[in-house]
Design a binder for these strands. Structure first.
Lengths: 124, 124
DNA sequence: AATCATTTTAGAACAATTCTATTTTGGAGG
DNA sequence: CCTCCAAAATAGAATTGTTCTAAAATGATT
């Protein structure tokens, strides 16, 4: 665990929980001006392998990193891109009841409007 | 509906149901040697807008196009990449019971091993 | 036959991520 | 306190699927 790696982790832990690489880079660079995008990627990968964080890929190509590595689902706000945590219960079991195929894992992203954006919509 | 567009649609309809753009391109070029990748993309977009096919984006960046536009879920074989249809029931309702956030839509891909690959695994 | 929007085409552009090769770093052993 | 070495960081190029741009072709409608 190097200083730069710790910085990447800290940035994520100091956030609401889900950030995209470029935003992590932007914030980490404030702590370490010498920080470079490749280092952010290297360390995000390393931290994922270590199980300290989790990578969440969405269907529109955006990658988010989650400071909470325990399994749960996610919603993305269609207005601002903010990612929120969801607890949808034991989907593995629910899905298994509906198909004979083995369920190794699944990717699930719910599209929503976050409370903040919902409030702004009502104003307008 | 032009000849090229019809060809793209036909390729998809003549398939098992889910193809990636490069494979659609490969097959469409057999029908129309002059076919170009940009035309395939143009027409896939147009056919999606027309509601005749559906685009399915996966978290690892692969795009599939589905000849069946009615809503259902999908599984992808981790061995061969083949996409299979799933019917998992009314997930919109199921998810709504678990969260207060509005559920506009969701992207779901299950990772599985298809029957063919499962058979091959047992052989080995 | 003329017009004009749509489609097709070729090729450049794009953007996020990964890769490659070089340099730097920091700890372990002497 | 050095020296060495593996790991990490860096710069910048490469990759890849998709989208964009501008020009050429097409085809339906006057």
């Amino acid at each position: 665990m190097t200083v730069k790696r710790a910085a990447v982790l800290q940035v994520l832990r100091d956030s609401q929980g889900h950030l995209q690489p470029d935003e992590i880079y932007r914030r980490a660079k404030e702590l370490y001006p010498g920080m470079v995008l490749a280092t952010v990627y290297n360390n995000l990968h390393a931290l994922c392998e270590a199980g300290l964080i989790r990578r969440i890929r969405t269907a529109d190509g955006a990658d988010y990193y989650d400071k909470t590595p325990t399994p749960h689902e996610h919603a993305v706000c269609t207005e601002c891109g903010m990612m929120l945590d969801l607890e949808l219960g034991d989907l593995h079991t629910a899905f298994s009841k509906k198909t004979d195929l083995p369920i190794l894992s699944y990717d699930l992203i719910v599209h929503t409007v976050c409370p903040d954006c919902k409030a702004k919509q009502k104003q307008a």
